[in-house]
Nucleic acid binder design. Structure first.
Ligand SMILES: [Zn+2]
Ligand SMILES: [Zn+2]
Ligand SMILES: [Zn+2]
Ligand SMILES: [Zn+2]
Lengths: 129, 129
DNA sequence: TTGCAAAACGCAACAATGTTGCAATAAATG
DNA sequence: CATTTATTGCAACATTGTTGCGTTTTGCAA
């Protein structure tokens, strides 16, 4: 793991994520790259891509885990993915939104590390139909 | 379902949730009421309690689903559970916090329905040790 | 180009969590 | 107490994620 490699599976998965306007789950990704690699490989590729800061995890409001491209990240630095996510109640898709400042005040006994904010509602394309 | 009943299983599950300072998952709840009812019954009781507004679901930052007592809800009215949740990175427990106003501005093309905000960090009791 | 170390893979087996169908049971109500 | 039907238990299935291990492939260097 110290020297990550570029494999067909990795490229295929990353390609699907990068070209999607919304976050994708492991089952969705496996469906899209089917024939390229095994089911287990998708899990392992996803873990590696997260470690390498190429993608990040998003937990949807129903608990399903999705993966999105790190558009605003450059290569190697790590950063907190504390930007907003929008979860559509109609098409169930979840997407990353612009980062916004959120003000929260908690008692001093709580040590804050990260904020996870997901907004549910109807996305632009579902609003049209 | 039009006329809900009070059963041993329902009371046992609700009791565990009501007396816990943090939210509990189905596996945790089943462990606590083991002997009282079947595994499947816990799932069904939880669904009913959510429908009846006695408890509400919380999705933790790792995607696990937990259930908490609706302290600030009265009996029959429905309301959005858009208060804050705090998720401890050490003990993994998630708890409800006071409701706070959160200001978010999105493009008009997004129709906002509900906000889900979870703060990760170290909880008071884990801060001591 | 060839050889090598280890990163990555496929496959099978397992684990955890959640769902469904149906016959049997039990809670509420009069 | 009898009736209605909400609720349960159980078995079977479905989905999602994990682990071990022998084999393949990648990156790099000789
Ligand atoms: Zn939509
Ligand atoms: Zn994101
Ligand atoms: Zn804690
Ligand atoms: Zn809550």
């Amino acid at each position: 793991m110290s020297n990550p490699r570029n494999t067909k599976a990795k490229q295929a998965v990353l390609n699907e994520i990068a070209n999607s306007s919304f976050a994708l789950s492991q089952p969705e990704l496996f469906e899209r790259v089917k024939g390229t690699c095994d089911r287990v490989t998708v899990y392992r590729v996803l873990d590696r891509l997260v470690t390498e800061n190429k993608i990040h995890k998003i937990v949807n409001i129903d608990g399903t885990i999705n993966y999105a491209h790190c558009a605003s990240c450059d290569e190697s630095h790590t950063h907190a993915h504390d930007h907003l996510h929008f979860s559509c109640v109609k098409c169930k898709k979840i997407e990353c939104l612009e980062e916004q400042l959120i003000h929260v005040k908690l008692p001093d006994t709580y040590q804050i590390k990260e904020l996870f904010l997901t907004i549910s509602g109807i996305c632009p394309s579902c609003s049209l139909s």
